[in-house]
Amino acid sequence: MSLEVNGHKTYAYTGNHAFDACLPTVIFIHGAANDHSVWALQSRYFAYHGHNVLAVDLPGHGKSAGDALNDVATFADWVKALMDAVGIEQAAIVGHSMGSLIGLETAARYPAIVTRLALVGTAIPMPVTDALLETSAANDHAAYEMINVFAHSPRAQIGGNRLPGAWMMGNSMRLMERSANGVLHADFTACNSYRGGLDAAKKTKCPVLLILGQRDLMTPPRAAKEAAASFSNARTVMLDGTGHSLMSEQPDAVLDALIDFLRPKNVTAA
């Protein structure tokens, strides 16, 4: 689906389905220097199982125009604007990494519109190392190289992908390399400067699911512990041996956790 949000052309993957006002909606939000395609399997499943799906390309990412935003609060306002543009009043939000912070802040700012919140590969707060901030500021390819190693478990760096014939490390690198100059740094700035995560967690009223990778070096599970305890209604699924690229490393496990969390009988407004 192509639509206009805040004056900019915006793309959201829908599984090739027209919007159905009778169905619940799930918004998938990608992480830094990524796009909607990181959710390929999971978003397609929900699109074909009783949901409207909006797997978005954030501003300045993928097929969406506009400048990359560098502030989580502004991203959250953009999600609200997206929902207004589509004409939906409520949605479940699933976010990965930076996308998890955007989902969290959206749920805190606009509690009436977020029915459920799934945080995949999250850390709250989400500090970014000086090395990554500096290399991304310089648009240095070394930033992508660092991320690619840190974001994949030792197992994933060897392969054995569940998706036949796909080399995870190569896909991840090529996807990041498609980012325009400045996008990665804007994303990292947004993550690094977001200080309101714990307060947002306390304000969040809807059910929350955290899906964490036991071998995640980018957002180690311990960095989500305090926030997990701050939610009023949250549970955590830990995926053994999994790094930060949870959707490609463990596509079925992530999907099963989301199915269990988002299945229609559980979908109720906060």
Binding site: G159, G160, N161, P164, G165, A166, W167, M169, G170, N171, R174
Partner: peptide, 15 residues
């Protein structure tokens, strides 16, 4: 699939 991943890794491709 293992062979496919292996050549993709050696060539620096995506698959």
């Amino acid at each position: 699939a293992a062979l496919e991943e292996r050549i993709a890794a050696l060539e620096g491709g995506v698959g």
